[in-house]
Design a protein around this nucleic acid. Structure first.
Lengths: 249, 249
DNA sequence: AATATTTTTGCAAGTTTTTGCTGTTTTTGT
DNA sequence: ACAAAAACAGCAAAAACTTGCAAAAATATT
């Protein structure tokens, strides 16, 4: 068996199960544990997965929708939010999804900026209402208990009647090959409708979630126009995304 | 099992239930209490959760309640809310408006009570989402900055397609002669639609608001079926309302 | 084709990490 | 203040990791 094949198999397993044990790999690949270890070490160096004691996990495995007090993650998100806010212009009509990164965006919108924002996220709506010059329209529907996010036909339907300037998508898992993925079927329905309703789509992602894949696919990378991360646009971790007609911020 | 998996499980549990006991974790993860303790200690050091004696809690778990400092008014409202909650039965589909009294109702709903609630109020929706057995459907629309309340054609339209068991109207000004009044034109449009959409309407009012009139009229007293105040049903202050076919609680 | 060079693989010895257990100290509730 | 529960510290076994090395395989060179 070729090394390439082995590593591809390992990556597939990681993408599929979000975690792998070196022993299992060694077993199913019929190679020594050392070989597998070296492979995983290599893939880790290439940032294709994360090596951990006893196995490996996909990126974004330990990241969460809710704002855990992780200050490093939070500062990353604020950095992303600052970049995003600088892209907004007066009078725009935009769509915002949920997630903690979008929350930071909502908080950081300057007082003078006049916007109309549609959102299905309770938290984002709440944060936006602090800004006098932002008109907030909530896309109503059945609310998810954990994400505080409206989903279902009502939301998708309302979105189908919109044509806005910009869609700012928060929490999402990003992979150059698999595109944008989520772990909730109902959420991707809404996000897809959001992308359809907007002329341009900006996607905000902390670098932890780059190169990670979840169960359900929202869209291909080609559906996205701008990618905002906390990394420098020249960072090699972003190499995989340069082939798309993306703006890296 | 990988250490990362364990820690992810722990974080998931913390985020889901806001708190966990080390014993429960040790049990469900099938590892010694020491291992769990070490994991939690680590996650605490990484600021991903807060370790407490015997368990751990999530960081962002602080119930923000915009309380008007008036303790008497608040206790009145809680008293009203308690009465109201006792009127609810399993499986009901209800409508709830906004206001601080309705907020108290939302908070006091028992964990076991199974409900479906439609509401155009951000705060009420948020409070309801804490209850696992309550399905919350937000009536989307343009949000009022001060009241965090959705108004406009979208809301009225969505309501016109509903026929629910009960409508719980919060903040309102009540007068035997002039009926129910409000100071916001857009709000009364929504409240009228809510009353139309429900078989029965309960109105919650602190006695301070009895016999007071505002600019715009929501409906006559005859449109209301039950009146809940913090007063005793026999209180003479309620005499003016006895001529209607009202239930006084 | 034969040889040299590089890469890959498996193995073994030594090191580190993880984990459960022990007894002791600290904290909590009554 | 006292008993019970929880936290802590140290220890030992097991699992996983590292390093160095030599055989095997692939690749390059003559």
């Amino acid at each position: 068996m070729l090394k390439e094949e082995r590593q591809k198999y390992i990556l597939d397993q990681v993408h599929l199960h979000h975690r792998v044990l070196l022993n299992d790999l060694s077993d199913s690949l019929n190679v020594s544990i050392d070989t597998v270890r070296r492979d995983v070490k290599e893939l880790d160096k290439e940032k294709k997965l994360k090596k951990v004691h006893g196995g490996a996990t996909s990126f974004g495995f330990m990241t969460f929708t809710k704002d855990d007090g992780n200050i490093y993650l939070k500062s990353k998100k604020i950095s992303i939010a600052e970049k995003t806010v600088s892209l907004l212009t007066d009078g725009q009509v935009i769509l915002m999804s949920g997630g903690t990164t979008n929350m930071e965006v909502a908080k950081l919108i300057p007082e003078k900026l006049v916007l109309t924002v549609f959102t299905p996220s309770l938290h984002v709506a709440m944060a936006l209402l602090d800004h006098e010059n932002v008109e907030v329209i909530f896309l109503g529907g059945k609310l998810l208990h954990d994400a505080k996010f409206a989903v279902g036909g009502t939301v998708v339907n309302a979105l189908s009647q919109l044509r806005v300037d910009l869609c700012i998508l928060g929490t999402g898992y990003l992979d150059a090959e698999f595109g944008l993925t989520e772990f909730d079927w109902e959420v991707i329905q809404v996000k897809q409708a959001m992308i359809r309703a907007a002329k341009k789509t900006i996607i905000l992602t902390v670098s932890d979630k780059l190169h990670s894949v979840q169960k359900y696919k929202t869209c291909d990378m080609t559906a996205v126009h701008t990618l905002v991360t906390e990394l420098d646009p020249a960072d090699p971790m972003l190499d995989a995304f340069r082939s798309f007609e993306l703006v890296l911020v």
